[in-house]
């Protein structure tokens, strides 16, 4: 367990956390502001990845592909909102869960219909390919550093938008008391639509960013969706700041746990038992973290005041 390995794994944890944040930010806004459970949020991540893959293949340039994918993901989110989700806001949570689960099944099958079942290939952009030597013998891919940078940029942008603009103020107000905002003459439906589209675009952005390092395939968002829910529950539903802190915590705990759980346990147990227990324990760590945080702060780290 050398220091360099620890640094590398911390970077890995950060990068994973950033991706989680991009997905969870939209989810927490939609859930917090509209009180709407959107299971189909993970599918929007997948759609973003497919759009980036398709546009990159079309233009031959990942940067252009990303630029085209973002507005398309936004438009796609808006279309979904108008066609389906808008009719669900006033229904109870079970109806929302059932309907959005149906959207998952439909879209997973639809991308397979359009692009085939085989994973798609997106090349890493030329300037960001390769790796830099962080420490002697330990290389770190440049593209992953770029993901961290892009994610931090988006986090800063979101902070500015939510805390220092009029739209952001309305969003915060809507999260606290939507009927009152509506009574003050704000078109709450349009606000919801914008929040929804923006959330879909963020998830799409996350999907597009990971397309060159992960395989783009049907159902790729389903596993991340569960983690995104863990993140927003830890962070406090409706809080972007909470989602940011929680996403990084989950990313770091998961990555470091998987790498070092066995090593740490070896201090107390014999080698075989330690690696066995470490393997079993590592995937549970984030849920233990969630349980512990909810025990002390039942509505998450940064609950939205009601």
């Amino acid at each position: 367990m050398s220091t360099t390995l620890l640094i590398i794994q911390t970077l890995n944890g950060l990068q994973f956390g950033i991706i989680l944040f991009l997905i969870a930010a939209g989810l927490t806004l939609v859930f917090g502001v509209m009180d709407f459970i959107n299971l189909a949020h993970g599918v929007q991540y997948m759609v973003g990845a497919y759009l980036a893959a398709a546009f990159t293949a079309m233009t031959g340039n990942f940067g252009l592909g990303l630029l085209l994918a973002l507005p398309t993901a936004l438009a796609f989110g808006l279309v979904l909102e108008v066609l389906i989700f808008r009719h669900l806001y006033d229904r109870d949570h079970l109806d929302q869960v059932l309907a959005t689960f149906g959207v998952i099944l439909f879209l997973n099958q639809a991308v397979k219909f359009v692009w085939g079942a085989a994973p798609l290939f997106v090349p890493v952009p030329e300037i960001l390919s390769g790796s830099i030597e962080i420490a002697p013998g330990l290389l770190y891919p440049v593209y992953r550093l770029a993901i961290i940078a892009a994610g931090l940029g988006v986090a800063a942008l979101l902070y500015g938008l939510v805390n220092h603009t009029r739209a952001g103020m309305l969003v915060r107000a809507g999260a606290t008391n939507a009927p009152m905002v509506s009574a003050l003459g704000v078109d709450i439906r349009r606000l919801f639509m914008l929040v929804f589209g923006f959330g879909a675009m963020l998830a799409g952005f996350a999907g597009a960013m990971v397309a060159p390092i992960l395989s783009v395939e049907p159902g790729m968002g389903d596993n991340l969706l569960i983690l995104a829910f863990v993140v927003i529950v830890i962070g406090g539903i409706g809080s972007v700041r909470g989602a940011f802190i929680a996403a990084l915590a989950v990313g770091l705990v998961d990555t470091l746990g998987r790498s070092f759980a066995s090593n740490i346990l070896r201090l107390f147990l014999d080698s075989g038992a330690a690696s066995q227990t470490g393997r079993a324990l590592a995937p549970m760590l984030i849920y233990i973290l969630m349980a512990a945080i909810l025990f002390f702060r039942p509505s998450g780290l940064f609950p939205v005041r009601r």
Partner: peptide, 30 residues
């Protein structure tokens, strides 16, 4: 599992003569 970055960091640190793996489908792609 789709992101192997932390496993790869461990692997690089161990500096073995070779690696053997069985990762069918999308896992293998990643």
């Amino acid at each position: 599992n789709l992101d192997f970055q932390s496993e790869l960091a461990k692997l690089a640190a161990a500096q073995p003569d070779a690696v053997f793996t069985f990762m069918p489908g999308g896992m293998g792609v990643n």
